[in-house]
């Protein structure tokens, strides 16, 4: 099974070719160009480098959110176009799920965080079960201060954190008394397309089938206009 993964939920643009047993190729950039300029070029280079065509793939996977609204839609729309034109299944996998995988084997809960602006992070907790991170709870946007108090309330003293949200609020997190933070090494700190690909291969093997028609991002946050309307209604 061969999957092309596209990661676009944060300023990192990534593409990867992944099978059950092999990370065949990966391209990762984080130098401030827009995903619209980089992603399609990277897909083309990756396929050409591997001597492959879209028709050789079994499926495509894109980041499903949460994350940057526009970033998610660029990757997903590109994935939809590729899947539609090549007649391939398209899966959405959460970038938070992918990041949790990057934490590797570790003690304690894993909390990937993506910078959500407005003093918040997109996040979700994970616990290892038989070596694999299993999600605990829903994807959500919340203030890092709140996570810290939740961890304290649950008696968590050792937490694995990663993602650009964790980096942004590093000082705040590290200033929490009685909390020991574990930071994965640099190559695992930010979203990798290969993580999405790995999770997608698992899901495809379990019989999951995605399609380009119905896939939409998980935003985990209302648009600003809807939020305001809701507040006025209150």
């Amino acid at each position: 099974m061969l999957v092309l993964a596209i990661e676009s939920a944060t300023p990192v643009a990534g593409v990867a070719l992944v099978t059950e047993s092999k990370l065949m190729a990966e391209h990762y950039v984080d130098y401030g160009k827009t995903h619209s300029q980089t992603l399609m070029v990277m897909v083309d280079q990756l396929l050409k480098g591997a001597g492959l065509q879209l028709g050789d793939l079994d499926a495509l996977v894109v980041s499903a959110g949460p994350g940057s609204f526009t970033g998610l839609r660029i990757g997903m729309a590109l994935g939809k176009g590729l899947a539609l034109g090549a007649g391939l299944p398209l899966l959405g996998v959460s970038t938070l799920d992918g990041l949790a995988l990057q934490a590797g084997p570790c003690d304690g809960p894993i909390w990937p965080m993506l910078d959500a602006g407005r003093g918040e992070v997109y996040t979700c907790g994970y616990r290892l079960e038989e070596g694999r991170p299993e999600r605990v709870g829903e994807y959500r946007a919340c203030r890092p201060e709140r996570l810290v108090s939740e961890w304290a309330a649950e008696g968590e003293s050792r937490v694995v954190v990663l993602g650009d949200g964790a980096l942004r609020y590093r000082q705040l997190l590290e200033a929490s008394p009685g909390l020991h933070l574990v930071w994965p090494p640099l190559p695992a700190l930010l979203p990798r397309a290969s993580s999405l690909g790995t999770l997608a291969v698992d899901r495809l093997r379990r019989g999951e089938r995605g399609d380009a028609v119905s896939l939409v991002p998980v935003y985990a946050r209302l648009s600003e206009a809807e939020r305001r309307l809701q507040e006025e209604g209150r």
């Binding site: 619209s36 609204f69 526009t70 660029i74 990757g75 729309a77 590109l78 176009g81 034109g85």
Partner: peptide, 19 residues
């Protein structure tokens, strides 16, 4: 609207490439 344009541009790009 940039976010709106990007949906169409990205989809068209992927589709043209695949076809």
């Amino acid at each position: 609207l940039v976010g709106a344009l990007l949906v169409g541009v990205s989809l068209a790009k992927g589709l043209a490439y695949a076809l």
